[in-house]
Amino acid sequence: MPASEVPRDEQAFLDYVQSGGKVEATDWMPDEYRARLIKFIEMHANSELMGVLPEREWILRAPTLQRKLALTAKVQDEAGHAQLIYRVVEDLGKPRERCLEDLVSGKAKFHNVFHYPTRTWGDVGVIAWLVDAAAIISQKALLKCSYAPYARIMKKICWEESFHILHGRDVVLALVTGTPAQFELVQEALNRWWGPLMQFHGHTIPADEDPMVIWRIKSQGNEEARQQFLEGYVPQIRELGLEIPDPKLRRREDGVWEYTEPDWDELRSVVTGHGPKTAERLAFRRRFLEQERWVREAVLAA
């Protein structure tokens, strides 16, 4: 193994990543950096995996052949993303089986938006369009992550997410130009999803106090991501005649969006396992994880 230029000293390592240095799987890294990477990336992988479930329920109900194919492909991509991301976690030292055990036992977390029910076909459009739009903002910022293997897979993930957003927007456009009841389906879904979407990027933490930013795992603050989401998508939502359920929402003259403070108690409660669908979805995962264990054992027994 050729000598690495990654310094084997915590302070020097920190300087290295802060000046734009990249770290590979085989490089030395401080324990704290590794632990933070694992926790963050594992939650990302868990979110992709749990993100499969809300939309998967609608694969069997897609109303045309084209929608069926697109929705299946979208959910398939989420499973594919989970595979890519768990692989990164595995290389950092945590085996996938353990990640999955921690997930189904409720020890590990996943993103707030995947704890909610998908009630109607309107949700399918709103999730693919807006949840994926919120996600792609975080993921694009991860292209600059100091941990290079993670940054590299993000390229493929972002490329695939851009199809998801378009698929979602297309579903929404079909509904808002359909019957009045179909328009209402989207409005009603948006009303339910807006709160979770505003919580999605997390509390406003100053970037220089966020350890994830300090280690250059993230390059974007939470509020910055939320502002980017609002700036990009509020006009796109409003031009369809949809109303955003926040009376305080407005763009100031300096370009900053003001909004009603998101319900942080709800966020905390949901991500710690008390969301409306948390228990059911984890039980569903557990069922298949256990049911198909023999297959993994048979396949791996070469």
């Binding site: 499969v52 299946t72 499973a79 768990y86 569903f284 198909e292």
Partner: peptide
């Protein structure tokens, strides 16, 4: 297609789902 996301391994999720999509195609 109902197996999308719940196959025995994530790798197989992707493979099995493509086959389901092909059949529908």
């Amino acid at each position: 297609s109902e197996w999308t996301g719940i196959a025995p391994t994530l790798e197989e999720d992707v493979a099995f789902s493509s086959i389901a999509q092909n059949e529908i195609g």
